[in-house]
Structures are given as C-alpha cells and as structure tokens.
Design a protein around this nucleic acid. Structure first.
Lengths: 206, 206
DNA sequence: CCTCAAAACTAAATGCGTTAGTCTTATATC
DNA sequence: GATATAAGACTAACGCATTTAGTTTTGAGG
C-alpha cells in the first residue's frame, strides 16, 4: 500500500456521525468533516461518490442500530408487554440520537433513503409481535399504526412540540397501550365507515 | 409610490409556495424564486430579511391553512365521529401539500418554526373534542397521542414507507378509531406500569 | 533504482445566501 | 414644468458549499 492512509470509509462515517449529533445535519459539511479528519474535502471522494452517498450510509447505519436496539428489547413473554418494551426502546433510541434519527426517518430525497431491506428489517420484528396480538391477518395495518404513533411521537418531541407541561413519558406509555388495546377490542366491530371523498376549496385556506 | 412595484410580500410568498410544492424545499432557492418573479435575488430582501424569515412565513401560512381545514371539518355531533373527521381532514391536507407540510412540521431550526400561538391554534380545536371523549383531565395526553399518530402516519406516507400493499386508507381509519376507543376503555385501568430506566449499551449497536 | 498506483493535494467551476452600494423612476412639492 | 425624495429595483462581490479535473507525494515490488 502506497501513501499511508489517513482516513478510511469507517473513520469518515464515525466522524460524520459525531458531527451530525453535535451540530445537526446543516452543520455537517464536507469541509468541516475533512478538517476534523486532518484532510481536505476532495479527499473524501475517494470513499464516497457524493455527499448523498455518505448520508445514505449514515442512515443505513442508524437503521441498523435501531433494529439492534429493538431486537434486544424484545424479550418478554406477554406480547403486549413486549410491544411496549420495543416501542419504549425505539423512543429511547430516537431521543438519544435525535439528529441521526431525524435524518434517517425524516423527509429526504430518495437517493439518501436506506434500502428497502433495512426498513423491512426494522418492521418485521415488531410486526411479529403484532401478529401475536391480533393475528397474522391484521398485523400489517396494526404495525403501520403503531409505527406511525411512535415515529410521530418522537418526531414531535424532537422538534419540541410538547411544551404545555404534563408528563410526556406517561402520555407516550398510555398512547401505545391505548392503541394496542383499542385494536384488540375493535376486532369485533367490523362495520366499514363512510369515507368522504371531495373536499371543498380548490386552493388553500379558501 | 415610486418605481412600479413588480413584486410584493404576498406574490413572493405565493410563488415560493408553488416552487416548494413542485420541487421540494431543496429546490427552493432565492435565485430561482426571484427569476420566476422576473427579478434578481437581492430584491427579495426588501420583503424578507432572510431566507429563514421567508420560510417561517411559509410555515405559518401552512399551519393557518391546516387549522382552517380542520375547523371546517369539525361539524359532527358525536365527538368520536368528529375526531375522525378532523384527523381525516388533517391527513388529506398533508397529502395534498406534502412539501409544505413536511417543511412546517419536520425538524427545523427554531428560527423557522411557526410561533407557538399558531401551533396552539392547531391543537386546541382537536383537544376540545378529546375533552368531550375522555374529559378535561385526560384531554392533553390524549391529544398528544392522536397528534403523534396522525403526524407520524402522514410523514411515513409522504416518505413512502408504506410499500407493502394493503389499504393504507383503512389502516389509517382503523388506527385512529382504535386509539380513541382504547383510550376510552382504558380509563378504568388506572394501575401504573413499571418503567425501565437504565438501558445497557453505552454506544450504538454495541 | 525505477516504475506503478494509491491517496493525498491544489485549482477551479458552479451555485448558494447575503451585504453594500448604485441607479431608476413615480410621486409630492414648489 | 422643474426638482427633491425615497421606494424598488439593480450590479458587484464575499464566503461557503459540493463537486470535477489534474497534479503531486509516497510507499511497495521488480
């Protein structure tokens, strides 16, 4: 090997994650990142073809970490308890790594999104637990709801939208519990509700 | 008035909203925006002190529109039906204006966030309905959960995370219904669950 | 010793937001 | 009608961003 390598794909990724969590995504520039690594910005292109590719790699690492976190939280006997433990672990992860979580799961251009497999790896363990609660048939829609609930909750928390006092922890616990119990009980209902189709006002705030 | 005014605060805002919905936030540059208005970029600074201020104005307009949309959807007698109608309207709005919704409610620097009043104006009508369902006492935590559920759902939809088939519309309807019913029923429980505190693994994916 | 190629570098293009200063012109006043 | 005022546009330029192209440094192998 010629020229003693100062950086590698891994060291770049690690330092990028550090900078990301410190200053948010808008403070993660290739200049700063390179400077932190004792190198100039163009050198990073030996390891990543673009900044987008770097961010995608970061996001995949984030999803992997989150999957691992949830996996290790899925230990209980009672599936309802297990589901709560997993969602709790999910929330703790997101609050511990707010910048990288927001980056990975926020709205971002297709090219920076983790591959589908990574997202499925995230979804499947939780869906398995849903399956135990409401059966295989309903497990997908139930998964979507619980994921939405947890994701929405932590996103609102991260952007500090819960400013009106009261225990946010308890609100989270109760929300998840209510959702699960509501679904279990609701399987008896069955009757489809009417869906409104046309909404008036062609332009906003008519 | 001297020099025939080519643009105004309002025309800038309207065109910015157009560009935002067409190309997403990363395609909304002051250069392009000015060019669309037949003007050069620095001229925009007569009407907004910074791009951040422009984006904040956009976001406040978005929240206002959403508030109005939900208000006009809150018409029913049964509070549960009303809550579903409001969340349905919320979701329809977000899907109709995905870029501006994501911008306003995604993770963004404090300075671009709508003022607190706007967010409260959004929350209060929905909380009033929650209040009718579970009482004033529980209305805040219940509101937080339903907002999280709806927000998370539409954010995941916008970033196309529901790719595995099945009716997403029905999943949404059922999720909201389950959450509300679960909360109503759950008010009898009362017993607090144990909360885990220490989670192992100091660094990610240990 | 000389060649090769990996891994860094410099230089520069393009585009971004932003600031400072300048020109243009509609209106109000004499 | 001439003139002063000031609003509303303009050009020029700075600093930083990502990215490309071409060059230099440096260790290892023949």
């Amino acid at each position: 090997m010629p020229y003693p390598s100062q950086i590698s794909r891994e060291t770049v990724l690690e330092k990028a994650l550090d900078l990301l969590e410190i200053g948010g995504v808008e403070n993660l520039s290739l200049n700063k990142l390179a400077a932190e690594l004792g190198v100039k910005a163009p050198s990073l292109y030996r390891y990543f073809n673009s900044k987008a590719e770097l961010l995608k790699a970061i996001n995949m690492a984030t999803v992997e970490s989150l999957v691992e976190t949830m996996r290790s939280a899925a230990v209980g006997e009672d599936p309802v308890e297990t589901a709560q433990a997993m969602t709790r672990a999910y929330r703790e992860f997101a609050k511990k790594h707010p910048a990288s979580y927001s980056l990975a799961f926020g709205t971002l251009p297709e090219e920076m999104q983790p591959d589908h497999m990574y997202m499925e790896a995230l979804a499947l363990p939780l869906q398995a637990v849903m399956s135990k609660i409401v059966g295989h048939e309903d497990s997908l829609p139930m998964l979507r709801g619980v994921w939405a609930l947890v994701h929405g909750f932590v996103m609102l928390e991260i952007s500090e939208q819960f400013r009106r006092g009261g225990s946010v922890d308890e609100a989270f616990e109760k929300a998840v519990r209510s959702y699960i119990h509501g679904w279990k009980q609701g399987r008896a209902d069955g009757a489809a509700r009417p869906r409104s189709h046309q909404n008036s006002a062609s332009r906003r705030s008519g």
